[in-house]
Nucleic acid binder design. Structure first.
Lengths: 196, 196
DNA sequence: CTGCACATGTAAGTAGTTACATGATTAG
DNA sequence: CTAATCATGTAACTACTTACATGTGCAG
């Protein structure tokens, strides 16, 4: 049981439906917690039957109705207990890095595929950096960062967002420089076609 | 089936036993793939019955015997295929970040616990940076980095190690600055004891 | 003679992923 | 009238984690 606390933490700053949470977990929260939509729907049911969150129906006329959730006192207590226990070490699983690890042993064509993926990821990382920049600005309102960090609130989301931005910045740098380097060393198929 | 490729990639640079792999996965490889020892033992069995790796018994007199594995041609082919398919997006799960996300809603005592954990992690990150620095030096031999990246080999492990080091450097910065900031804002129990 | 590092596994339980299914409303 | 976004779920499967079990040889 680990996803539950990520969901509770995400619900602290407002009411969200499963669908909305799914999008949040695909963006900001994904920097420290990964989950697919299905997990969220089933976790929300479980959390509600356990009384850690409470849902209420929102009737919408312009689109399908939805059910939004808020954290109950019992839910806050659960987060409190969670924060008092030692956190398990973080886990990362990144297939693209596995591919780079093996890059000396694969064919030219396979290396090209890895390079192309690195370039795609660099673009995605750049987009995500933009989103984080925007979120940070929104969170701190009209305060400058230094002032916000000293006096603003809520602080938690701002701090995790800072971490997410730096992570994506590092991703961007590494994806870009690694793709360029591998291109230079293995040569691209296009270059070889040109050369012939 | 995802762990298999991480194991194959890790075995590319030499013969290792399950126990040795477990330590590798606890250090360098852990920066892009997480696995506990038990997973490695069972995955190694499966990979061997599928013919992707081959094991051989090493008789040791000073310590218990062990079984070390090498990647077969079929294993390399599998990695080749893997590199040609689109990589699934990377996943991260970091409980400590979940705690920070919730930091505005928890008690003073719980926040103190989170701060202490951040400080512990900063120490661990610093240690890991040292290990990476050492590994990088070892991998490039007597070449300087620029030359190694242009001409050296194996390149894959060096590149992933660079990524690991930067990740830990960012971790260190963030853990340290976040702990300091939260200490400043919530005050420590010790400070309050002093003040009273 | 105790604890630690080495070395490998089985079994049970929990968590996460994938495939499938459904249906409303709006924009083009 | 078709695709996209919104909205939620069930069921089957796969992967991962945790607890337990066992044994060697060395160092203090």
């Amino acid at each position: 049981m680990a996803l539950r606390h990520a969901v509770l933490a995400a619900l602290l700053d407002g009411e969200y439906s499963g669908y909305q949470l799914a999008k949040i977990f695909d963006l900001s929260v994904s920097n420290f917690w990964h989950a697919v939509p299905q997990q969220l729907y089933s976790e929300l049911s479980r959390l509600e039957t356990e009384g850690l969150i409470r849902g209420r129906q929102i009737i919408q006329h312009d689109r399908p109705n939805k059910r939004v959730y808020t954290v109950t006192q019992a839910g806050v207590d659960e987060l409190e207990r969670f924060a008092l226990t030692p956190a398990k070490p973080g886990i990362i699983r990144e297939n693209l890095l596995v591919m780079v690890q093996a890059v000396d042993h694969i064919s030219h064509a396979a290396a090209d595929s890895v390079i192309a993926q690195l370039e795609d990821r660099a673009v995605a990382a750049a987009a995500k950096i933009g989103v984080f920049e925007h979120t940070l600005k929104h969170l701190r309102g009209d305060l400058d960062e230094e002032t916000f960090l000293r006096t603003g609130s809520p602080l938690g989301p701002y701090l995790t967002c800072l971490r997410g931005r730096r992570f994506e910045q590092e991703n961007y740098e590494w994806f870009t420089s690694t793709a360029r380097l591998l291109r230079g060393r293995t040569g691209t198929q296009a270059e070889e076609d040109e050369a012939s």
